[in-house]
Amino acid sequence: MARIGRDRDTRGDETRTDGIEVKGKTVEKALEKALASLKARIDEVDIKIVDQGQKGVLGIFGSRDARIVVSRKKSASGVEEVVDEVARAIMESLDVNYRLFSEEVDGATYINIETAGVDGLLIGRKGDTLTSLQHLIGRIVSKKLGGYQRLTLDVGGYLRNRHDILKQKAVKAAEKAKKTNHEVALEPMKAAERRIVHMALSELDGISSYTIGNGEMRKVCIAPQRAEEQKRAGNR
């Protein structure tokens, strides 16, 4: 069975080999295979050539496959390594394999954890457990690396989906506010979710948004701009 990048069940911090060894007729072919199984682009990996391979006579006799070791590059900031350490502690206690995928989005590190069957458990009701996880990992990351590191933690792509849904809801509610010329309140949301909604709404014309309510009940309210306000906005 192919071992993929960040699946790990072994400790050993300095010498850990999270790379995979791949064989192919040529180095290029082996690399292609490796990238496919790591789901990585060529600029995301380190490549070590173990054996160039040999064509051999007529391509049959004395031919030897090329062998390379391909591993994901470690992120420069070390955020990914810290997250991996925490994730490993949790996944080991749950007896579950996992994978980390990380990318840089708008200057923040976005890390998605995919688990073999406990995504729902780690997300929790309305993402509560995920929020807890994000908090813990955030604390540990800033303790280990110092300063403030922008990190978004996701499990099974939950946040991404949720944010897409929120944006759609916001746009729909904004249309309703404009059409009816009445204020429209959205469901109560967490601070991070309200931020997404406000940002999506700020790109739309003819409405303004603000937050009402306290604590758990804080929700975004969308108000249609009156005609004179719109004119003023247009003159600016």
């Binding site: 780690l122 807890s132 813990l136």
Partner: peptide, 10 residues
């Protein structure tokens, strides 16, 4: 709270 949430999940 976060630690407890994790313990609960596990």
């Amino acid at each position: 709270k976060a630690l407890r949430a994790l313990v609960n999940a596990a």
